[in-house]
Nucleic acid binder design. Structure first.
Lengths: 243, 243
DNA sequence: CGTAAAATTGAGCTGTCTCAATCAATGTGG
DNA sequence: CCACATTGATTGAGACAGCTCAATTTTACG
C-alpha cells in the first residue's frame, strides 16, 4: 500500500497525473487503486522532449509504445504529395497522441510539434495488460477513442459542408471547450499557440484567407487572439457563426 | 462440439458468415472455435429489414445492440442545420455499422439506407463478453475500428486538400478496393448502387458538379458507371488523378 | 540584434456553386 | 402491366467564396 497518485480532492486536469487528459488518476482513486496501475512507476515509460515545429513521429513509423503529450501542444497531420498537408487533430497538453496506437503499432500519420514540450511513451504491452485487468481503464481508453472518432466526424462535416467562417469558429469553440473541461481557462482566456498556418491546415483553407476571416472576427469583437492566447468575447455570436 | 460456422475452405467474404466484413468466421475456424462465439445462435441478435432511401437509425438515437448490415448498402451521415448533409462513410454488405457502438450506446450520426436490405443487431453485452473472452475477436474488432478511423482520416485529407476530381477518383478507388478484398468483383465490375447525390454528399460537392466530373471520367474512358455498377477501365490513370 | 517565421494587404483569377430548365430512370398503385 | 409520380442526371449561364501571387510589415527567437 503506497500513497495514491493524486490527492483525493484533485479534479480531472490535475497536474500530478500524466494522463490527466483521460482522467485516469481519478478512476484509480475512486477504486482505491494506487501507483501500480498508472504511469509514473509501474508501467514502463520513457520521457522525452521535443522542440517547437519539429516532427516528433513520422508518417508510417512503427512505434512500440503509446505516447502521451505531457507539456506542450502537438498536432497529427497527414502529408500528401506536392506538399499539401491536412491537420487531423490538435493534441492539447495531457492528451494521448492517438488511441489507435493501442491496437496498431504503425502510425499512418505524422505527429508534429507546435510548441516545445515533453512526452512519455508508455509500454504498449503493459498498458494493454492494465487495460484488460482493470475495466475502468479499458472503459476510459475506449471512450477516449470514441471521442477522438467523434471529433474526426465533426471535422469531416466541417470540411465538407461548412463555410470558412464556420470552420474557424468551430475550431476555436472546440479547443475552447476542451480546455474548459480540463479546467485550463485563466483570466477568461486559454493558451492558444496555434499559428494561422495550423488553422489553415486544419480547416482546409489558405493562410491568407484565414487571416482575413480572423480579422473579421476581431473587428466584430468576437475574439481576441494574440500572444498565443485566445479569449472569446462573444460566444453566442461565435456559436451562431458555427451553426 | 457442433459444426463450425463456415466450411474450412471459405475465404473472407463468404456468404455464410454474417460478420464476413470482419472475417470473424475464419478466425474462429483457425482456432477451432465453433458456433457459440459467432452470431447465428449464441449471441442474441435480431434480424430486420430496411427499405431503400429510408433512415435506419436516427442521429442521437440510443441503441442497445450493434447492428451489422447483412445485405444491401447503407451510409452513415451527419445532418446539419439548413439541410446540409455530409456522408461520413459507406457501409457495404457484411459490414458492422460502426465499431464505436461497441463502446457507446449513443449514435451521434444517422444511418441511412441506400438500397433495401437486411441487418442484424447483436446484443451488446454478449458481444463484449465474447470480445473479452476471446482475444482474436477483440483484436479483429479493434482493428476494424482502426480501419474505420483510418478511412475517416483519409476522408478528412480528401475534403481539406484535394480537388473535386481527386475526391471522386479516390472514392471510387476506395470502394473498389474494399469490394476487391471481399472478393466481390464480378466480370471486372462491382455492384455500385450509389447515386450521384451520395457521391456529392460524401465528397462535399454538388450533384451538378459531380455529374460534370463523372462525365469527364467517362469521356476519358476511365470508368463505366451505370445501372448501379462500376467498372474501372483505366486504374492507373484514375490513381494518378487521385494522387 | 539579426534573421527567420508569421501575418497582413491588395489585385486578379478559378473551381465550384446556384439557379433553372429539361430529360431519363425508377418505383408505385390501380 | 401500364400510367403517373418521384427521384436522379444533364446542361448552360452566371456568380462568388476562397485561391494565387507578390509585396510589405510585424512578431518571434537564438
Amino acid at each position: 500500500m503506497t500513497a495514491p497518485l493524486c490527492p483525493p480532492d484533485q479534479k480531472p486536469g490535475c497536474s500530478h497525473c500524466i494522463m490527466r487528459g483521460l482522467g485516469l488518476c481519478n478512476v484509480l482513486i475512486d477504486m482505491g487503486w494506487e501507483r501500480p496501475y498508472t504511469g509514473e512507476t509501474t508501467i514502463q515509460q520513457k520521457k522525452s522532449n521535443f522542440a517547437a515545429r519539429r516532427t516528433i513521429f513520422h508518417q508510417n513509423e512503427t512505434l512500440d509504445g503509446v505516447p502521451v503529450i505531457c507539456d506542450g501542444w502537438a498536432t497529427s497531420i497527414m502529408k500528401l504529395s506536392n506538399g499539401r498537408r491536412q491537420i487531423l487533430s490538435f493534441i492539447v497538453p495531457g492528451e494521448l497522441v492517438t488511441c489507435r496506437l493501442l491496437f496498431d503499432r504503425k502510425l499512418h500519420l505524422s505527429i508534429d510539434a507546435i510548441t516545445r514540450g515533453t512526452y512519455r511513451t508508455f509500454d504498449l504491452a503493459q498498458l494493454r495488460a492494465a487495460m484488460t485487468m482493470v475495466p475502468p481503464i479499458f472503459d476510459k481508453l475506449l471512450s477516449a477513442y470514441n471521442d477522438e472518432r467523434n471529433r474526426a466526424d465533426q471535422l469531416i462535416a466541417d470540411l465538407g459542408r461548412r463555410t470558412a467562417t464556420g470552420r474557424i469558429a468551430r475550431l476555436m469553440l472546440d479547443i475552447w471547450s476542451r480546455m474548459e473541461k480540463a479546467d485550463m481557462i485563466e483570466d477568461g482566456a486559454i493558451e492558444f499557440p496555434l499559428r494561422q498556418t495550423h488553422i489553415a491546415d486544419a480547416t482546409g483553407l489558405t493562410t491568407v484567407y484565414v487571416s482575413k476571416v480572423i480579422n473579421a472576427f476581431r473587428n466584430g469583437s468576437l475574439v481576441e487572439y494574440s500572444e498565443r492566447s485566445l479569449k472569446i468575447l462573444n460566444i453566442d455570436k461565435l456559436r451562431q457563426l458555427a451553426a
